[in-house]
Design a protein around this nucleic acid. Structure first.
Length: 301
DNA sequence: CGCAATACCTGCGAGC
DNA sequence: TGCTCGCAGGTATTGC
């Protein structure tokens, strides 16, 4: 099997790791090391609906031609490449947006690398390089945002995002006010990107375990000190996952010797029936608004 | 407005 | 062996 020059996702291909904030942040850092200041020469769209804007794949490719990437930013789980032209680097030329959703991957490969199944979009750079978007379940999307158009008018999902978990806006006070009147389960609220941007199913379950809070507990029933703990653990879980290079759950991290309780091991996620790492009680799973929630019935209440 | 259900997808594994 | 079916989950949309 031909290995990519660099797998920007940085995680084990055999494991299905859905990209949440730490994984997207890891991809962003890889993109910033590899893809900047090189004009896009051409490209190919193999699946039309992978391009959310503009309407036609041809228009998308035409717009990107000749542009280069100044820097990659991240907002929630969205990646945003600031575009410019080599001759006029200070003049913004819009944005390239990417959302990996469930199974999206960005690969930095040689153009001669055989095109694997599920390849959706190819962008060709100089020196035979290519940014390849591969996405088995086809939920991932790319956008081109024209210059002078506010990004969120094209990538409308950005409008619905709450604060970044490491921003000043995401304070314990904010979180308390966002939760105190809500009648929904706390797990559901953590998955709601309008409350805080970036948590997905895995890190939401891990956060609740570390906070000793049962996933079905109603937001409005949480004590202020519990919200404080929750706030701290949201940051702790995401921070340690980012420090592990984007995933806390991959085999190769374990075999390469990185470990400790956030280096290769989930407390509860996908551990139904296995003993709790703290009290040995079997981990349970229930369905909550169409998602699985994993928890320890003894440690979490 | 708040919240939940559903649609969108494909591959895989369980069960028959 | 080969089939069906449930499940995995981020986000947009729909509907109560």
């Amino acid at each position: 099997m031909p290995a990519p020059v660099f797998d920007l996702t940085g995680f084990c291909a055999e494991l299905t790791i859905v990209p949440e904030l730490p994984e997207v942040e890891t991809v962003r850092r890889g993109l910033n090391r590899l893809t900047l200041h090189q004009p896009i020469q051409a490209g190919s769209v193999l699946l039309d609906r992978a391009v959310a804007h503009p309407e036609s794949a041809d228009a998308f490719l035409k717009a990107l031609q000749g542009l280069q990437i100044k820097t990659w930013k991240r907002r929630g789980k969205y990646l945003l490449a600031a575009l410019s032209r080599a001759e006029t680097p200070s003049q913004p030329q819009g944005w390239l947006g990417v959302h990996l959703r469930m199974t999206g991957q960005l690969l930095w490969v040689q153009q001669t690398t055989p095109v694997q199944g599920h390849t959706r979009v190819r962008l060709w750079f100089q020196d035979d390089r290519e940014l390849r978007f591969v996405d088995q379940r086809t939920f991932g999307r790319l956008w081109w945002v024209p210059p002078a158009r506010p990004v969120e008018t094209v990538i409308t999902g950005l409008r619905r995002l709450g604060p970044e978990p490491f921003s000043a806006a995401f304070s314990p006070t904010y979180l308390r006010s966002a939760l105190e009147k809500r009648q929904r389960a706390i797990k559901t609220a953590l998955l709601d990107q309008a409350i805080v941007a970036g948590l997905g199913n895995i890190y939401a379950d891990e956060t609740l375990f570390l906070s000793g809070i049962h996933p079905t507990r109603l937001c409005c029933d949480l004590q202020p000190h519990q919200v404080e703990i929750l706030h701290q653990n949201i940051q702790n879980v995401l921070r340690s996952a980012i420090n592990q290079g984007g995933t806390s759950f991959s085999n190769f991290l374990q075999v390469s010797g990185v470990n400790g309780n956030y280096g290769g091991i989930a407390w509860v996620y996908d551990r139904k029936g296995q003993p709790c790492r703290v009290c040995q009680t079997p981990i349970e799973r229930l369905r909550l608004v169409g998602r699985s929630a994993h928890f320890c019935p003894y440690c979490q209440s």
